[in-house]
């Protein structure tokens, strides 16, 4: 699963086969008539399935200029839903940055019985259907909880659900980098008298920073758009535990498509800005070394 996350399509993971092999694949053919036909069919399907519907969202949000936007943002419940979503997502991402890195560290550098099982456990939140993820958490932290905790309808519940669904992101992006990291450099630093903390701060963290940031942006994007796992847990109290995606659902059910589209557009905007910002930060950290 790790490479599903960390290898964006179009940039092949470096393999040990040398550059000559990779370069030979480069010169591409011009389209043959058959390939051109295939491309045409593929593009029509892609447009019908993805591009046209998504542009319908953007255009509906701007149907009557900025006024829908203004009224959406000035609506108290919508604004608090957006703030809650962004706040919870930021908090969950922060916790994941620490916990995810620690988990990756333990999985790579530690040896113990049952480690392989933990490897599978990490991916379970990805594999489970989101609604089932919600139900899974309710079995321990919901009504009839064996530990007498009930998080239904609380912000803690939202936090817990988001923590569950975003678990694999940072672990799976940091893990391969940590595996590649040369232990010799750390040993050299130690032999030159660097303390463990200095090694961590000056050598390990800078090399992990880009991976952590990449994982963090994935986790954040997932957290602000999360829906399924929150349906049963959040409780949907307006202004209290109503998140953006559930607000969109409420707008759709209330036949208010313009408002739904403008909240959706804002979500896309926030995700884009945060991903760009994290990219900048990670580059700066990596450069400082």
């Amino acid at each position: 699963m790790s490479s599903t996350l960390s290898t964006p399509s179009g940039t092949p993971a470096p393999s040990g086969k040398g550059p000559a092999k990779v370069r030979r694949a480069r010169p591409k053919d011009a389209l043959t008539p058959a390939a051109g036909l295939g491309l045409g069919v593929a593009l029509i399907w892609f447009s019908l399935l993805v591009l046209l519907p998504l542009s319908a969202v953007v255009l509906t949000a701007f149907d009557d200029g900025w006024s829908t936007f203004a009224s959406t943002l000035t609506d108290r419940d919508t604004r608090s839903a957006l703030l809650l979503t962004v706040g919870e997502a930021a908090l969950v991402t922060l916790v994941n940055v620490v916990v995810g890195t620690v988990i990756a560290w333990v999985l790579v550098r530690d040896q113990f019985i049952g480690k392989r099982l933990l490897e599978v456990v990490i991916d379970v939140p990805f594999a489970l259907p989101t609604i089932v993820a919600g139900l899974v958490l309710l079995s321990l932290y919901g009504p009839r909880s064996p530990v007498s905790v009930n998080v239904v309808g609380t912000r803690t519940g939202i936090f817990l659900a988001l923590l569950f669904v975003t678990l694999p992101f940072i672990v799976r992006t940091v893990q391969p980098v940590l595996q590649e990291l040369d232990a010799d450099v750390e040993e050299a630093a130690a032999s030159l008298g660097a303390s463990q903390f200095t090694i961590l701060r000056r050598i390990v963290l800078p090399s992990l920073a880009p991976a952590i940031a990449a994982g963090a942006s994935l986790a954040f994007a997932r957290a602000i758009s999360e829906f399924g796992s929150l349906v049963l847990i959040a409780g949907n109290i307006p202004g209290e535990t109503e998140v953006a995606s559930l607000k969109i659902l409420k707008f759709i059910e209330g036949d208010n498509y313009a408002a739904a589209a403008s909240v959706a557009f804002l979500l896309l905007l926030v995700a884009t800005v945060v991903i760009a910002a994290l990219d900048v930060i990670s580059r700066r950290v990596a450069r400082r070394g």
């Binding site: 993805v50 046209l52 519907p53 998504l54 319908a56 969202v57 509906t60 989101t130 994007a221 602000i224 758009s225 999360e226 829906f227 399924g228 995606s245 969109i248 659902l249 759709i252 498509y257 739904a260 589209a261 959706a264 979500l267 896309l268 995700a271």
Partner: peptide
């Protein structure tokens, strides 16, 4: 499609 919220996917298809 991987970075679009499922609700937004549904909304987009309804709007189209």
């Amino acid at each position: 499609p991987l970075s679009v919220s499922p609700v937004v996917v549904g909304l987009a298809l309804v709007l189209a």
